[in-house]
Amino acid sequence: MESNTPVDTSDLYRDIIGFAHDTPAWLQTLAEVWTEAGLLLFGVLFAAAWWRARRGDPRALAISVLAPLATAFAYVVSELIKSAVDEERPCRAVAGAAAALVECPEVGDWSFPSNHSTIAGAAAVALVLAWRSLAWLTLPMAVLMAFSRVFVGVHYPHDVAIGLLLGALVAFLVVRLGARPGARVALALRGSSTQAVRWFAGPGDRAAAGDALAGHASAAPQPAPYQGERTH
Rank of each mutant, 00 (worst) to 15 (best):
A196W: 09
E36F: 01
F46Q: 09
P225Q: 07
A72N: 09
S148D: 10
A214M: 03
L137I: 13
T118I: 03
S218W: 02
E229T: 12
V160C: 11
G178T: 09
A49Q: 10
Y75I: 14
A62M: 11
H155P: 07
F73M: 14
V44K: 03
L166Y: 05
F46T: 10
H232I: 06
L134F: 03
Y156G: 14
S114K: 09
S193E: 06
L39P: 04
V94E: 10
A217E: 08
V197S: 11
G56I: 08
R190P: 00
G121M: 14
N115P: 01
A135T: 07
E106F: 05
A207F: 00
G56W: 05
I17G: 05
D22M: 12
V152N: 05
Y156I: 04
A53P: 05
A70D: 15
A120D: 12
D109K: 10
I17K: 02
E32L: 08
A98S: 08
A95N: 12
A120C: 12
I119M: 10
F112P: 01
S193K: 01
A179F: 02
P24G: 14
A53D: 13
T138Q: 12
Y13E: 08
A123F: 09
G56K: 06
K82D: 00
G210L: 09
R54V: 13
A60Y: 00
E32Y: 03
R132Y: 03
L41W: 09
Q227V: 10
F19C: 11
A20S: 14
M141Q: 13
G108A: 09
P181K: 07
A47F: 10
L166R: 08
R206S: 11
V94D: 08
T231K: 11
W131A: 15
G202L: 02
Q28K: 06
A20H: 07
I162S: 08
F200T: 02
D22K: 12
N4Q: 13
A217P: 00
R14F: 12
L40E: 07
S10T: 12
A122T: 14
D86V: 02
V125D: 05
L40P: 01
T231G: 04
T138D: 13
L27H: 06
L177N: 07
C91P: 00
A122F: 04
I16G: 07
Y156N: 15
R190K: 01
A70G: 15
A123R: 12
P24N: 15
S218L: 04
T71C: 03
G96M: 01
E103Y: 01
Y13H: 11
V85F: 02
G210H: 01
W26D: 15
A31E: 03
G38W: 02
H158N: 10
D15F: 10
V44N: 07
E103K: 11
V44Y: 06
L189D: 07
T9G: 11
L39A: 14
G178Q: 08
H216T: 10
T5L: 09
A100N: 04
A93L: 02
G182D: 02
A60Q: 15
D109I: 11
R59N: 12
A98F: 00
S3W: 01
P105T: 15
T35P: 01
P105D: 06
S83F: 03
R54E: 14
Y13N: 07
I17A: 03
D86C: 02
H116I: 04
F73E: 15
